[in-house]
């Protein structure tokens, strides 16, 4: 029961500390908010990029062409064999007629197309387009398909897939490095805030030590202060990001609809579902760590003052 009362006393004192030490608290909250805002922006960009890569991975596929005279039955068998593979997302069959129609409509002028009449120059161009669920398996799958009887040619897009995956990795590493540096700055600033709070209340702490307060009792208000700074510093950017995400995405889709017609963004709920707990956890963690590390150093310096 008494521990609960001490806990609430610590929370009360922690809140008071923030107001007593408002300039430094404001600086810490701002830095924390800036760090977590950048973290949020990086996360949003990264998760959307990853979403883009994933959808690209499923769109990037292999095109399988067949030997002359391969029957529809054999093509269906090959299709069934490919579909059985775990790394395959889906397989689409494009007949020679469909291929010619597509070619005529996209590459030829109507006049030129007319000259061909009912002839189909792409008579042997029936194909299967294979979409992968795991793009890294493209080579393995390619070797397998080539080994199948009746397969003449295979067009792959490993280059595109590789460069997308590579870019994803570089962005992850660079943003992780930036976020780590920013979080170290935030930890340092919270430490400074706590340190100032401790020196402002040096006499009080010295009396507490003299009277016989436990280290835990002396530390609680400062740890609460650090955690509260972390929570407030996390809540501000989360609110800004939540409010602005839909607007920015809407604006991007509207302004660049011609370029972005194939690009879709993650829905805000999906982004925030991860961002809210992670940001709050980082805020609380940094606040806790910053205050604990600083207190360990600062409280040792304060004597009972005889």
């Amino acid at each position: 029961m008494q521990k609960i009362s001490t806990f609430f006393y610590g929370i009360g004192q922690g809140i008071k500390n923030i107001f007593r030490n408002r300039m430094f608290s404001l600086a810490s909250i701002s830095t924390m908010a800036a760090c977590l805002f950048l973290f949020g922006v990086f996360y949003i960009v990264l998760s959307n990029f990853e979403y883009l890569v994933r959808s690209a991975e499923t769109n990037v596929g292999l095109t399988v062409f067949f030997d002359e005279g391969t029957t529809d039955e054999r093509i269906n068998e090959i299709r069934a064999l490919i579909l059985r593979r775990a790394e395959v997302h889906k397989v689409e069959y494009i007949s020679a007629e469909e291929a010619w129609e597509e070619y005529k409509n996209t590459k030829l002028s109507p006049e030129l197309a007319e000259t061909f009449g009912d002839d189909n120059p792409l008579e042997n161009s029936a194909s299967l387009t294979v979409y992968l669920s795991d793009v890294s398996m493209q080579d393995v799958l390619g070797r397998y398909i080539k080994s199948l009887e009746g397969v003449r040619k295979l067009n792959d897009s490993a280059g595109i897939a590789d460069s997308l995956s590579g870019m994803n990795k570089i962005i992850t590493v660079v943003s992780a490095a930036i976020i780590i540096v920013l979080l170290l700055v935030a930890t340092f600033l919270i430490g400074m805030t706590i340190s100032t709070g401790v020196s402002v209340r040096k006499q009080e702490i010295s009396i507490m030590k003299l009277i016989g307060a436990s280290n835990y009792f002396i530390r609680i208000p400062y740890i609460v202060e650090g955690i509260l700074i972390g929570i407030i510093g996390a809540a501000i950017p989360l609110l800004i990001l939540r409010l602005s995400y839909s607007k920015v995405v809407g604006m991007l889709e509207e302004k660049f609809s011609t370029v972005l017609n194939v690009v879709t963004f993650l829905p805000p709920e999906r982004v925030m579902r991860v961002l809210i707990p992670v940001s709050l956890l980082i805020g609380v963690g940094i606040g806790f760590l910053g205050s604990v590390i600083t207190l360990r150093r600062q409280l040792r310096k304060i004597e009972v003052g005889v």
């Binding site: 008494q2 009362s5 006393y9 507490m208 009277i211 016989g212 307060a213 009792f217």
Partner: peptide
């Protein structure tokens, strides 16, 4: 009261 508070005396 501070002296009692810091040693967690019941209110």
């Amino acid at each position: 009261a501070f002296a009692q508070r810091v040693i967690e005396t019941p209110v």
